[in-house]
Write a protein that binds this DNA or RNA. Structure first.
Lengths: 342, 342
DNA sequence: CTGAAAGCGCTTACAG
DNA sequence: CTGAAAGCGCTTACAG
C-alpha cells in the first residue's frame, strides 16, 4: 500500500464533458466565465465535475493560456526566520484578494565554505517557475544575481536591497530610521562610544553601515567599525577585535540579531558583565532576540507590514503592469530589552 | 525598465529544429537519447539550441511525458531550522545523482490562534505539485493530513512519524535511543528525579513521551510528566507547573530545544540558578542549543544524515517503485553543554 | 538512424 | 448561448 495501486487517473475536462453531455469547450467556459453558460447546462457540468472529482490541470492550463492565475513567491533563504514571517503575511494578503501565492525556495545548498556569496538561486527552480508562467513574482530576500529570475512579468522585492540598476519595486525597512532609533536610545542612556559590527555580505549590510556612519556624523560621534557579515561566528570574531581596542566602546550595534549574539558571546568570553560593561543591540527583531536568555534590544522591521505591502504592490502591478517601480521604506520600531537596559 | 519590454519569447523545439534543419522530434530525441542521433545532426542541433538559448519547457514536457524528471520536496514548516538542514542535505544527494529536487513550502499561514493543528498543507500547492507529476515525493516534517499529498508516486517521509496506517517509508531519528543517551548522561550525574515536558502536539512529541516513560520504567525511576507542545511558551508554562511541585525534579528533558528554552526561562524567573538547581536538556540540537547564552544539552538527530538517507530512499524507490515501505531510524548523538554540566 | 502524426489537458478565437 | 478546430511545447510509438 505504499502507493495506491493504479493511482486512478484524474478526471479530465473530456470526462466531464461526456458525463454532462456537452462539448469540451463548454466545460472550459463554464469554469472560466459561468455567466455565459445556460443555467441548466451549467448545473449538469458542475454536477458532473463534482461527481468525477474533476480539478483543472494546472500544467495544461498554464500551457494553453497566457499564464496561470498565481503569484510566484521566492524565498531566498530557508533559514532566515525573517523571511518566513514576510512570506506568511504576504500570502495572507494575496489569498484575501483571490490570488494564489506559490511559495518556493530557491537557495542552493550551502557548499561548506566561508567566502560563499549569499542568495544564489537555483537556475532550474527558476526555469520551472518561469515555465509555470505566474502572473507576477515576489522575491523575499536579496538574490546574488537578479538575471536568474524569470523575466517579463512584474517583480516585487521584499526585504531586499535591489542592485544599482534600480527601477525595481521593493519594500523594505528604513534602515536609517532604525539606526536613528538605536542611536537615540543609546545616547540617551549615556553612550558616546558606539561601535558598529557589520558592513560585509552585501545588500542590507552595506546600507546599515552607511546609516551608522551617517548617524555618527550627525551627532559628532567617533566612527568605530568592525567589519562582519550576518552570522553569529562573524559577530563573535568582530566582537573579539572590538574588545581588544582601547578605549573600548561602551555600546555595539550589530548588523543583525545573529551577529549581535556573537558579540555578546565574545564579550562574556572576555569576562565582561553584560550589559553593564557593554550594551549590545541588533537588527531584525527575530524571535531569537526575544528569548529570555538573549533578551536583545533590536530594531523591529515590522515584517508582517513588509509582507503586506509587498503583496499590495504585486496586486497593483497586476492592475497596471507598466507602472514605474519604486522603493517603499517601512518605518521600523525599536524593541528595548535587557541587553541595553541592564 | 521594471519589466523588459516584450520579454523575448523563449525559443521552442520548433525554432531549434528549423535552425538546425531537422524535424522537431529529432530535436526531442537529441535531448533525451543523444546516442541515437547521428553526430553531425547532433552537433547542428546543439549549436542551434545554444545559439537560440533553448531550454525545454518544463510544463510541456510534464504534460506530454509520463512525468517530469524531478523530485518534489515538501517542507512542512518554513520556520523549523531542522527542516532546512534536512532539505539541504537531501538536495545535495539528489543533485549528485542527477535528480533535481524542487523544494516547495506547503504550510498554510498560521491563523493566529493556539489550538491550531500543526502541519496543515495547502491544497492548491499540492494540486500544482501533483500536476507537475514529479517522479517521487519527499515530505520533510509531519503533515496533519496525509490525504492531501499527491498520490500514485513513491513517497518518503523525513523527520516525521507517519500515521498509524503504516507501510510508509520514513527516515527519522531513533527517539528511544536519544532518550537513553539523555538518561544515561543525567543518571550518571546523579539525577534520580527526571521530569519530561512534552507529549502534546502529535507525532514526534508522543513518541518521545513514550520513550521517556519506557526509560523511567527500565530504571525504576518515577515518571514525572508535564504536558506541553513544541513551543517556548508551552515549555515555560509547563516549567512553571513543574517548579511548583514538591519534591522538585532535579532534571528536565523537554520534547525539543524550544520547549527546553522555555523551561530554562521559567526556572530563572522563579529565582533558580541553572544548572545547579535544575539540569535542562532538549531534542533536535538546533543551532539555538549551541548559542553560548543558551548552551543547551541536546539530542542530535543528525539531520544531514536523515536528509541523505531519505534522498537515498527516494532514489531506491525510483528504481523499484513497488518495494515495500519501511521505517529507518537514525542513531542519534548527544551534545552535552552547560545546561546539564554545571 | 530519421520524420510525419497523434496526443498530453487545457484555452481561445471563430463560426454558427 | 454553443461546438468544432487549432494550438500551447513537448514526447512517444510507428512506419520508413
Amino acid at each position: 500500500m505504499s502507493k495506491p495501486a493504479g493511482a486512478a487517473p484524474r478526471a479530465t475536462i473530456r470526462d466531464v464533458a461526456a458525463q454532462a453531455g456537452v462539448s469540451k469547450s463548454l466545460v472550459s467556459l463554464a469554469f472560466k466565465d459561468p455567466a455565459r453558460v445556460s443555467e441548466s447546462r451549467l448545473r449538469r457540468i458542475r454536477d458532473a465535475a463534482e461527481e468525477l472529482g474533476y480539478q483543472p490541470n494546472f500544467l495544461a492550463r498554464s500551457l494553453a493560456a497566457e499564464g496561470s492565475p498565481f503569484i510566484g513567491v521566492v524565498v531566498v533563504d530557508l533559514r532566515n526566520p525573517l523571511f518566513a514571517d514576510i512570506a506568511d503575511a504576504a500570502r495572507a494578503v494575496l489569498d484575501a484578494h483571490g490570488q494564489y501565492g506559490l511559495i518556493t525556495s530557491a537557495s542552493v545548498p550551502g557548499v561548506a565554505g566561508a567566502g560563499e556569496r549569499y542568495g544564489i538561486v537555483d537556475d532550474r527552480v527558476m526555469a520551472m517557475l518561469q515555465d509555470l508562467r505566474p502572473r507576477a513574482l515576489m522575491v523575499i530576500g536579496t538574490v546574488a544575481d537578479a538575471s536568474a529570475l524569470p523575466r517579463g512579468i512584474p517583480l516585487v522585492y521584499a526585504s531586499a536591497a535591489p542592485e544599482a540598476d534600480a527601477g525595481q519595486t521593493s519594500v523594505r525597512v528604513d534602515d536609517r530610521a532604525g539606526m536613528e532609533l538605536l542611536f537615540d536610545h543609546l545616547v540617551e542612556r549615556g553612550h558616546r562610544r558606539i561601535a558598529f559590527v557589520g558592513g560585509e555580505g552585501g545588500g542590507v549590510s552595506r546600507l546599515r553601515l552607511d546609516a551608522y556612519l551617517e548617524a555618527c556624523r550627525t551627532r559628532g560621534l567617533e566612527e568605530i567599525v568592525h567589519p562582519a557579515s550576518y552570522g553569529e561566528r562573524e559577530g563573535a570574531d568582530a566582537g573579539a577585535r572590538l574588545l581588544a581596542s582601547d578605549p573600548r566602546p561602551t555600546a555595539v550595534i550589530a548588523v543583525n540579531d545573529l551577529a549581535a549574539i556573537g558579540v555578546q558571546a565574545a564579550a562574556e568570553e572576555a569576562g565582561l558583565t553584560l550589559p553593564r560593561d557593554l550594551a549590545v543591540a541588533g537588527f531584525d527583531n527575530t524571535y531569537l532576540a526575544g528569548l529570555p536568555r538573549i533578551s536583545l534590544t533590536s530594531v523591529d522591521p515590522r515584517n508582517a507590514e513588509i509582507g503586506r505591502l509587498a503583496a499590495e504592490r504585486v496586486l497593483a502591478a497586476l492592475e497596471d503592469p507598466d507602472a514605474p517601480g519604486d522603493e517603499e521604506l517601512v518605518r521600523p520600531g525599536l524593541v528595548m530589552r535587557a541587553s541595553t537596559l541592564g
